[in-house]
């Protein structure tokens, strides 16, 4: 393990800025999100809670141009977008958000070869920061990892007061630190402090779900319309929970064309809570609100695991924190009917 004094981190960021577009957690825009580092701000070194907009926006932006086109004499000429995206470095990403990116990689890398996503993903390094202040809406420890898990980042930093203990996770991470000023070997005492910080953060995650029980109950709960109607009654069908979810990846495709025949194809975030979702290609098969709410839960906790062997939820709690009506997915998951309802009814 290595360590670096907090006051030396600025030098590290300056060094990295020569090779990368450096993004840090910031509220300068009016909402907390990963923003380009201004070369000065360092407040995030002392206080870094989950950003409102998840870092997925750096891989799958809310809107992106796919290509341009021009219509001339009845034919279309395609104009590719300008080259590759720059190398980017995300500093201060939390384990939950890094894990979320690893989760949706499966869609963009394995199920498809999505160059828009992958060209950014392949050129990104993730400098993780162990989460010291989980929110009361967080439930990451119920999903097989915790607020200081380093599995999905290149370097992990753990706050021990005036310094960070550094874990070099990947070769890429090790390379980034080579020859960096202020990086020294951590002492046994530093490592002890880091371990204590990790335990303390884990203890702060008090919201729990039982994924074993959930996967047992979900198949049988699907047809319990009464349950889904009841739990979805207060949902207002906005897009907040999905747009701010670090693992929701649905997008829509839209063309824009000017009268001179020039235009562009874009993709933008889409959301299964919207009643008009998928209406463009056909119809939305989930016209009722309860079916849409059910879909959201099943996609994350049953369908995605069936396809990619992982739950598409990291327990980051954004959907609970940001929901206009405090619809709480953990309450739904913890209240799933046992699945024996039909048989019990029949027996009676």
């Amino acid at each position: 393990m290595k360590k670096i004094k907090k006051q030396d981190v600025k030098g590290l960021l300056e060094k990295w800025q020569k090779d990368f577009a450096v993004f840090v957690p910031s509220s300068a825009s009016g909402v907390s999100q990963m923003d380009a580092w201004d070369g000065k701000e360092t407040a995030f070194l002392d206080r870094n809670r989950n950003t409102a907009v998840p870092p997925k926006a750096k891989f799958l932006p809310s809107m992106e141009k796919m290509f341009g086109f021009r219509r001339e004499k009845g034919t279309y000429t395609l104009e590719p977008t300008n080259g590759d995206p720059p190398r980017q470095l995300l500093f201060g990403i939390h384990p939950c958000d890094a894990r979320a990116i690893a989760i949706i990689d499966a869609v963009f890398k394995d199920a498809y070869d999505d160059r828009y996503y992958l060209s950014r993903r392949e050129k990104t390094v993730l400098i993780g920061m162990a989460c010291a202040g989980p929110y009361d809406s967080c439930f990451c420890t119920s999903l097989g990892y915790g607020p200081s898990d380093s599995a999905d980042v290149d370097i992990m930093l753990t706050d021990i007061g005036d310094s960070f203990v550094i874990e070099e996770v990947t070769d890429k991470g090790k390379e980034l630190l080579t020859g960096s000023k202020g990086v020294v070997d951590a002492t046994k005492d530093d490592e002890k402090k880091a371990a204590a910080a990790k335990t303390s953060a884990e203890d702060k995650v008090t919201r729990k779900i039982d994924t074993g029980e959930i996967s047992k109950r979900l198949p049988g709960a699907f047809d319990d319309q009464e349950f889904w109607e009841e739990i979805s009654a207060k949902c207002v069908s906005c897009g907040i929970c999905t747009f701010l979810c670090p693992t929701c990846y649905c997008f829509d495709i839209n063309d824009e064309m000017l009268q001179d025949g020039s235009g562009a194809r874009y993709r933008n975030w889409d959301c299964c809570s919207f009643s008009v979702y998928t209406r463009m290609p056909a119809e939305n098969p989930r016209e009722d609100k309860w079916r849409r709410v059910r879909q959201k839960v099943y996609h994350k906790y049953l369908f995605y695991p069936e396809l990619f062997e992982t739950i598409a939820c990291t327990g980051c709690g954004r959907c609970i924190r940001q929901c206009p009506v405090n619809w709480d997915i953990t309450q739904t998951l913890n209240a799933l009917p046992a699945g024996k309802k039909e048989e019990t009814k029949k027996a009676a």
């Binding site: 825009s29 909402v31 907009v53 207002v236 906005c238 897009g239």
Partner: peptide, 28 residues
């Protein structure tokens, strides 16, 4: 311009609004 640059078009404003009751919103 600065404020609306952040908008992600989640339509939360429309969905919680009691008087945004159109069956089909003009944006759709």
């Amino acid at each position: 311009k600065g404020e609306f640059s952040r908008c992600i078009r989640c339509y939360g404003c429309r969905q919680v609004c009691p008087v945004c009751f159109c069956d089909r919103c003009f944006v759709e």
